[in-house]
Amino acid sequence: MRVIWVDGEPHKVDVEGDMPLLWVLRDEVGATGPKYGCGIAMCGACTVYVDDRPVRSCSLRIGDVAEGAKVTTIRGLGTPQALHAVQAAWIEHQVAQCGYCQPGQIMAAAALLHDKVAGKPPLSDADLDDHINHAMSANLCRCGTYMRIRAAIKSAAAKLQGQRP
């Protein structure tokens, strides 16, 4: 038995240490926000935060998640009633098509903005593009919503610029 904190709630799970975090979340905890797409960190659909750092939960064994670590899924980032700035921008730009990759995209984008924008000196548009190109290309979207992802990140960045993280 181990206890895993997901979106602020503790869950007791009885799993072997080499089960990837993704499957603990999806099948044991019932947190289906993170998705299974490739199983080998090639698509990013399973992205969650462990102690506020984005990770591919399909490639992280639960045994390597420290006891008491804080796991945040897309549902812990914001809710329909209290959207995170990135989620609001995603809706403003009508980004999603099938939507299956979007939890991972949004988690990656929110981490990028947290690291590079919120509370930081303003980035030029070219520098922001550079960061988007490098930080967001590990998240695959088969529907091809990349243009809108870029636009939504820029729109969220404009709102977050100068704000405290």
Binding site: A41, R53, H134, A135
Partner: peptide
Amino acid sequence: NYLVCTTCHSKQNSATPHGP
């Protein structure tokens, strides 16, 4: 600076073919 390696490369070698 962009995307830290440990986003995908965790403590263990992936057991899945072609895994990180």
